[in-house]
């Protein structure tokens, strides 16, 4: 399986994502520059963490106009799996591929620490290798990770089983303790915590690797259904 890792000016977790896929997972990863209008032959796309365009205006607000985002939109619309991590999640909500918004942490501080996440659903191509209710130890590193949405959207997310991860202890004020959500079609996941930083034994946790393993598993299932 081939993962495309989009590189925006200011991305800084692109190499971590590449390493997790290439070394920890043993699959292929390729960088895609932000002004590319095509994704090549990528089977899945990762929007990595960082500070695209210096977080100018709002986090992800400038990145959503990058040429590559039209290709990402088309890829997602065709059912391709898209994983947005941290700044990648912020870009996905700014681009309207996921509902809600991410605002300044309630406590105003940039928080960089390992947190506990609860996997709330395994009914998607990103968490099928976890157990529902499983607690994962994965780091967060963000200043604007407080998830907000209107009450109707929050109800909809819960009713449609689209809340994938919740914080066990809410670090940033996110409504509903939300750490990661899916789009309605369940092929786009945005999450503030960094699974790629918990993918190697050296990093103190490999709990995040399951996200990438699930993507591989889901891809294999789709491929075998096609053949």
């Amino acid at each position: 399986m081939k993962f495309g890792v989009v590189v925006f000016p200011g991305s800084n977790c692109d190499h971590d994502a590449w390493f997790a896929v290439q070394h920890n997972l043993g699959h292929q990863a390729e960088f895609i520059w932000h002004d590319s209008t095509r994704l090549g032959d990528a089977d899945a796309v990762i929007l990595p963490g960082g500070f695209s365009y210096g977080d100018y205006l709002r986090c992800g607000a400038i990145a959503k106009f990058s040429p590559v985002m039209n290709a990402v939109r088309a890829f997602a619309a065709a059912g391709g799996p898209v994983l947005g991590i941290c700044n990648g999640f912020q870009i996905l909500v700014e681009a309207g591929l996921l509902p809600g918004a991410l605002v300044r942490n309630r406590g105003l501080k940039f928080i960089c620490e390992p947190v506990q996440l609860r996997c709330e659903t395994t009914a998607c191509g990103f968490t099928s290798t976890y157990a529902k209710g499983q607690i994962l130890r994965v780091p967060i590193a963000h200043g604007e990770g407080c998830y907000v949405a209107d009450p109707r959207t929050l109800d909809e997310l819960a009713a449609e089983d689209r809340i994938v991860f919740r914080y066990v202890e809410n670090p940033n004020g996110s409504l509903g303790d939300i750490a990661g959500i899916l789009n309605r079609e369940r092929n786009v996941l945005g999450m503030m915590p960094h699974p790629e930083r918990a993918a190697d034994p050296l990093m103190g946790s490999t709990d995040g690797l399951g996200v990438f393993q699930s993507m591989v598993q889901s891809f294999a299932r789709v491929a075998s259904a096609r053949s």
Partner: peptide, 13 residues
């Protein structure tokens, strides 16, 4: 500016 329903922690500070 933020909508009235959105908390503005910087404003509070």
């Amino acid at each position: 500016s933020f909508k009235p329903t959105v908390l503005d922690p910087q404003g509070v500070a």
